[in-house]
Every structure is written in structure tokens, then in C-alpha cells.
């Protein structure tokens, strides 16, 4: 574990584990019911009973941040999983077989990558409609090209190594060579792109939910909360600030992890 010598990596591990612990606890226990309203406790400033204060419906913001962070993270995780799966299939096949299909797919890949993700995501949402599931599908598809590119480069590099030739001589099928021999060897390289993928996915989910296209009320999501909090900025600035800081911590943690993994 040479990575631990890297300050970026250590900071990334610390921040990400902290957020993961908060999210994990949030799945089973929150101090209050995140959706429980209370007419007498509207806009309470942060204090002992409500560490982050309460919102316009008297809901406990700390509980909502816990649940919102887990919703945001769950969507990010699903997005990265879809993107990575698609990237492994596309990148693996094109990198391994090469040829004109490789050229064509990579050209398409690059032109998709040249576009701002938010624009493509908006078009996808226009086609599919809004909501949690559709956001996962659109972002997942949008994340495939970047993973495909990395996988392709790595697979093409591994293709001509001795161990792959050996496996071929022993009669292993192409699928077996890809899955059993090549993929495990590119895992370390993929880790840093998974980290940056999480970074981008959290940002994308937060943006889409902020625009009102992702998670729908009353369910909390960090972006959704910022959207609501903006209306009460003067009365309850702690609302926006708590949700915003949670987003920043998630993004910062994954960003640092990525840098730590790719620095070396």
C-alpha cells in the first residue's frame, strides 16, 4: 500500500470514509424522521436538538442531509456501475479486436466526450422524462464513453503481452482471456477512473436534482434540498449551507482519491 504515503490519497480516504459512515448510518438510523413535519419548529437555527437546524416544514435538516447524501450516493453508484459495465464491454471488445469497428466506436466516443455532459443529460431527460430511474439511465449511458476509452487503451496495451499470448496458446477463448486474464490486470488503472466517475456522478446528480429533473419531492437528495433551500436563503441560510457542504465533501473526497490513485 504505497498509496498511503500520498497526502491526496490519505485525505481522500479520510473524507470519503467519513461520508460513507454518515451514509451507512443514515440508511438505518436518523435522529428524526427525515420527512416528519412540525409546524411549531419551522426555521429553527442550528442548536442542540437540531444540529443543522430545521427547514420550512420544520423537518430536521441533519436527518435530511443524511438521507439526501445516501440518495445522491446511491444514484452516483448506480450511474458508475452502468457506465463501467458498458465501458468494459465496449472498451474490452474494441481494444481487443481493433479494426474498423474500433475506429468508428472511438470516433463516436470522442465526439460524445467533447460535449458538456449537462447538455446531453438534458436531452436524454427530454426523451425519457424526469425522475430517479431516468436520471440513472441517462447518466449511466453518458458515463460509458469515458470508461470505454480508458478500458480500450489498457486492453490494447495488455493484448500483446506474453501472458495473454500464453493463455491463447493454451486454448483459452477470447472472452475468457478478457474476463479472467486482462480485466484483473487493468483493475488498478480503472480504480482512479472509478473515483473520478463518482466525482462527476455526484456533481451530475446534484445538478439534475437541483434543476428539478432528478429525485422528486418529498424524498431528499442533496441537489433537491439546495433547490428548496434557495427560496429561504435569508430566513434559513443553514439549510443551503448544510446541503452544499455535504455535496462538496462527497466531490472533494472522490476527487482527492482519484488524484492520489493517479499521482504515484
Amino acid at each position: 500500500m504505497n498509496y498511503m504515503k500520498n497526502a491526496n490519497f490519505r485525505a481522500g480516504v479520510a473524507i470519503t470514509s467519513f461520508m460513507m459512515i454518515v451514509i451507512l448510518i443514515g440508511l438505518f438510523w436518523t435522529p428524526y424522521d427525515p420527512n416528519a413535519m412540525s409546524g411549531s419548529e419551522k426555521f429553527n437555527p442550528p442548536g442542540l436538538s437540531h444540529p443543522f437546524g430545521t427547514d420550512n416544514f420544520g423537518r430536521d435538516i441533519f436527518s435530511r442531509v443524511m438521507q439526501g447524501a445516501s440518495a445522491t450516493f446511491a444514484i452516483a453508484a448506480a450511474t458508475v456501475a452502468i457506465g463501467l459495465a458498458g465501458g468494459l464491454i465496449i472498451g474490452g471488445l474494441t481494444g481487443y479486436y481493433g479494426g474498423w469497428l474500433d475506429d468508428l466506436l472511438m470516433r463516436i466516443n470522442d465526439s460524445i466526450l467533447a460535449f458538456p455532459a449537462i447538455l446531453l443529460a438534458l436531452v436524454m431527460v427530454a426523451i425519457l422524462g424526469k425522475g430517479r430511474m431516468n436520471i440513472i439511465i441517462s447518466l449511466g449511458i453518458l458515463f460509458m464513453p469515458s470508461f470505454a476509452r480508458i478500458v480500450r487503451t489498457e486492453v490494447a496495451k495488455q493484448k500483446n503481452t506474453d501472458y495473454v499470448r500464453n493463455a491463447k496458446l493454451m486454448g483459452a477463448s477470447d472472452i475468457r482471456i478478457l474476463c479472467v486474464h486482462i480485466f484483473p490486470n487493468i483493475l488498478t488503472v480503472l480504480l482512479s477512473s472509478v473515483a473520478i466517475g463518482f466525482n462527476n456522478a455526484v456533481l451530475a446528480e446534484a445538478s439534475m436534482s437541483y434543476l428539478g429533473l432528478g429525485v422528486q419531492p418529498p424524498d431528499p437528495s442533496l441537489g433537491r434540498m439546495l433547490n428548496e433551500a434557495q427560496n429561504f436563503l435569508t430566513r434559513a441560510p443553514w439549510y443551503a449551507i448544510s446541503a452544499g457542504i455535504a455535496i462538496i465533501l462527497l466531490i472533494l473526497g472522490f476527487g482527492l482519491l482519484n488524484e492520489g490513485l493517479s499521482d504515484e
Binding site: L203, A206, Y210, L226, Q230, G244, I247, I248
Partner: peptide
């Protein structure tokens, strides 16, 4: 790491 829209809110 600050999303532009949160920077905007701040």
C-alpha cells in the same frame, strides 16, 4: 469541488 450552482447560492 464546489458545484457552480452552490457557488452561485453562496
Amino acid at each position: 469541488a464546489v458545484p457552480p450552482f452552490f457557488m452561485g447560492i453562496l
